[in-house]
């Protein structure tokens, strides 16, 4: 995981030094590698808009060691107020990545 990420970063630097449209090219590259690039990116761009502790539309999911099967089940079925996402929007690989990313985050602080 971390190897492929640093590999991607290296590609990005290389591209940046050569092409004038560096940023555009880099983001295209990142998207080509996988649907969302990384679990962090998926969380930042989609899940976190509701689940970030500072937002609070959905419950905190960071640092709770939620199993991948559970995350996939909820994402695919939706759950009451939460909408579902087809694989065309968030594929299985990205769900695996985001699950792993969530497990690296600190557990939520206990409610006061």
């Amino acid at each position: 995981m971390s190897d492929s990420l640093s590999g991607k970063a290296a590609k990005r630097v290389l591209v940046a030094s050569v092409l004038p449209f560096a940023l555009l090219a880099a983001s295209t590259l990142a998207q080509d590698d996988s649907q969302w690039g990384s679990g962090k990116n998926l969380y930042d761009k989609i899940c976190g808009h509701c689940h970030d502790p500072k937002v609070g539309v959905g419950p905190v999911i960071a640092g709770r060691d939620l199993p991948e099967d559970y995350v996939r089940f909820i994402v695919r079925n939706g759950f009451n107020a939460m909408p579902a996402f087809p694989a065309s929007y968030i594929d299985d690989e990205s769900i695996a990545q985001v699950t792993e990313y969530l497990s690296t985050l600190p557990a939520p602080a206990a409610r006061p």
Partner: peptide, 16 residues
């Protein structure tokens, strides 16, 4: 600037 804050509406009664 995008945000999904307003989805809190769906929690007013909840249940989808």
């Amino acid at each position: 600037v995008p945000n999904l804050q307003e989805f809190g509406l769906y929690n007013w009664r909840g249940g989808g």
